[in-house]
Amino acid sequence: MLREKYKDEIEQILSRYPVRRSALLPLLWLAQTEEEYVTEAAMKEIAGILRITPPQVYEVVTFYTMFNLRPVGKFHIQVCKSLMCGLVGSDVLLGWLQARLGISPGQTTPDRLFTLSTVECLASCGTGPMMQINDEYYERVTEERVDRILADLKRDGTSPLKSGPFILPQLAGSEK
């Protein structure tokens, strides 16, 4: 139950808005962080907290693409396939990933480590091709970096190749 575990946080969130329902996205984020995906129980609980009906929560969850209604792998790899990344090789990147992981977009590896998705523009068109893995961005991805990232993740659960704050143009071109 979110209500018990995150009592203060929920109170804090609610206090930011004059209308309870506004807290819906923040609470869904809380639920997704807690369980990796938004469970039915969480949707019902959130409806109760916000005094709306479960269908009103559900319709919102399904509108936003970042909420998962089913469990995803431990690492959710989301490759930007919009035009700008497409121009600099996102299809190739996707190809590598498919080959390395043995899955197509929408699928999860049998060990439940990786889920592969394609997404639309993530606002790093100047540093493409790029992908987001869980919360982190990985930019200017090359074949060799894909291998390192996957290995890092498997081994350490994280990778030093993830992006820090926005790469400034002066640094552009010089590989990290």
Partner: peptide, 17 residues
């Protein structure tokens, strides 16, 4: 408030919960 338009775009579907 029992009907939820779920999904978006052309694939929006009227569902319950």
């Amino acid at each position: 408030k029992a009907l939820a338009p779920s999904g978006r775009g052309t694939m929006t579907e009227i569902k319950h919960f």
